[in-house]
């Protein structure tokens, strides 16, 4: 199960809506080994595409160095699908390289940039095997400090 605080959940949804029709992407870092997502880091989709996302390689290194310095790891890796359901594509599965992470997919296919619900789902992707898991948005969890 993925447990997320409300502030982080809302921020991920807002990011996905803002970048629609391009795919939005980012991570939520957390203390190494904790499985607690506590620091939301929206990333720029260097591909700038409605069907692909990729972190810029220089920003990717900066992101990981920052996490290493804080003894953090990526707890959530998220991106949006803007025309399809919130299920990992073959490409997503093939490129899932963080076996410890929760892979979150948000679909903005129905409402785009507008108000309205999104599909928000989470998966484990390990050695090409996708396992969906429950998402629990917890209003009582403390909101993480904004950067």
């Amino acid at each position: 199960m993925l447990r997320l605080d409300r502030t982080t959940y809302d921020a991920i949804v807002a990011h996905a809506k803002r970048d629609h029709p391009d795919e939005a992407c980012g991570i939520v870092a957390g203390a190494e080994g904790s499985d607690v997502p506590s620091r939301h880091i929206p990333m720029i989709n260097a591909a700038g595409s409605p069907t692909f996302y990729e972190f810029d390689s220089t920003e990717l290194l900066a992101l990981y160095k920052d996490m290493w310095a804080r003894d953090e790891e990526p707890v959530v890796v998220y991106h949006s699908h803007t025309a399809t359901e919130a299920y990992p594509s073959r490409t997503d599965i093939g490129l899932a390289n963080e076996p410890g992470a929760h892979y979150v997919l948000v679909s903005t296919a129905v409402h785009g940039n507008s108000e309205g619900p999104v599909e928000f789902r989470s998966y484990r992707i390990i050695d090409g095997v996708v396992t969906e898991e429950e998402v629990s948005v917890d209003d009582t969890l403390l909101a993480p400090a904004e950067q």
Binding site: E23, Y53, H79
Partner: peptide, 11 residues
Amino acid sequence: VVVLPAVAGGA
């Protein structure tokens, strides 16, 4: 030297 897999994917 740092090795990092890309964080990427697509619909």
